[in-house]
């Protein structure tokens, strides 16, 4: 008999095909459901496994009501802020995420945000959608060239390194901060600056690739933005909580920052609408991993974790051990 699975969110077609082949699942293509319906379906189908996404608030209360026959809950995301891992651990429920597979996709989007912010892509698009019909003077609507600029990377993990690789193709001079210096083969000539505040004045473009601070305090506050050179460009495709958005709005309005590219916000999807009133920002709806290839890989990774646990093996990406 095939293992029984509940999927609480729509998933890419290729993942649905695998679920249909390997699992007994009432909606292999996934169906958007809330916690109450999820709990009902888990009980009704006597499910062995559960696949969720960051959409599902997997609180201690919800975890406490998961039936005992459910042997693993896999989230189809790299982030797991929506899951109470301690509660899952307390009741012995393995929970997993999908790291690694987002690296290239996120790094691509980061470079895209650097380019679209520097080159004023939002304003250019608005001109086109309004019908254009006039040429520009040679000093009009000029952007910032990316090539040869100094790029600061906050957090030189897998994604930070992938961003650095791409940025070198644009002749960017890379400096970074992290808890510790990387090996030379990872650095590839990038300059290590241990202190964020010492890094900031040396960045024409700054991109964040750090996890959220445990105390929830924003890394980028008014003081930090003030330390960037005038005309700098700020990019965040990592975490909204890293930024004091009031300070970012002020820096964009005053012109201290030339532009920003933002894929994440403190509150999603109810982000601060004042960003949408600014011309010098490029805004995307948390789509760093939004490619068919990557979302498929994420779904497959979640299924790999589920298959491992159901076969009696340890999960590949456990969130608690």
């Amino acid at each position: 008999m095939r293992p029984r699975l509940i999927v609480t969110r729509q998933i890419p077609a290729a993942v649905a095909v695998r679920i249909g082949a390997e699992f007994d699942c009432p909606w292999p293509e996934g169906r958007d459901m809330d916690a109450e319906e999820m709990l009902r379906q888990l009980a009704a189908t006597k499910a062995d496994a559960l696949m969720i996404s960051s959409h599902m608030k997997f609180t201690g209360e919800v975890i406490g009501r998961i039936p005992d026959h459910v042997r693993i809950a896999a989230t189809c995301s790299v982030g797991f802020e929506h899951m109470d891992v301690a509660a899952a651990r307390a009741r012995g429920l393995p929970v997993t995420n999908t790291p690694d597979v987002l690296t290239e996709c996120t790094a691509d989007l980061t470079l895209m945000l650097i380019l679209t912010a520097c080159r004023r892509a939002h304003e250019y698009d608005a001109i086109m959608r309004a019908g254009w019909r006039r040429g520009f003077g040679l000093g009009e609507m000029l952007g910032t060239r990316v090539w040869g600029k100094r790029l600061g990377i906050v957090g030189m993990g897998r994604i930070g390194q992938a961003v650095a690789r791409r940025a070198r193709g644009f002749g960017m001079d890379i400096r970074y901060t992290d808890q510790q210096r990387m090996r030379p083969e990872i650095e590839q000539g990038a300059t290590f600056i241990p202190d964020l505040h010492a890094l900031l004045p040396e960045c024409d473009v700054l991109t964040l690739h750090a996890p959220g601070a445990p105390d929830g305090r924003p890394l980028m506050n008014a003081d930090a933005f003030a330390r960037l050179p005038k005309g700098a460009v700020f990019v965040n495709a990592a975490r909204g909580v890293l930024v004091d958005e009031e300070a970012l709005l002020a820096a964009l309005r005053s012109g201290h920052l030339a532009a920003a590219g933002l894929d994440v916000f403190r509150n999603e999807p109810a982000f601060d609408r004042r960003f949408a009133e600014l011309p010098n920002v490029f805004l995307t709806p948390h789509m760093a991993s939004a490619t068919v290839e990557t979302r498929t890989a994420m779904g497959m990774r979640a299924l790999d974790n589920i298959a491992a646990v159901l076969a009696g093996r340890p999960p590949i990406d456990p969130l608690w051990i």
Partner: peptide, 16 residues
């Protein structure tokens, strides 16, 4: 924007 969804605005991976 009503929030993140696994199949929302899926594009094509450029890398590789």
């Amino acid at each position: 924007w009503t929030g993140w969804a696994p199949t929302q605005l899926l594009g094509t991976l450029v890398s590789g």
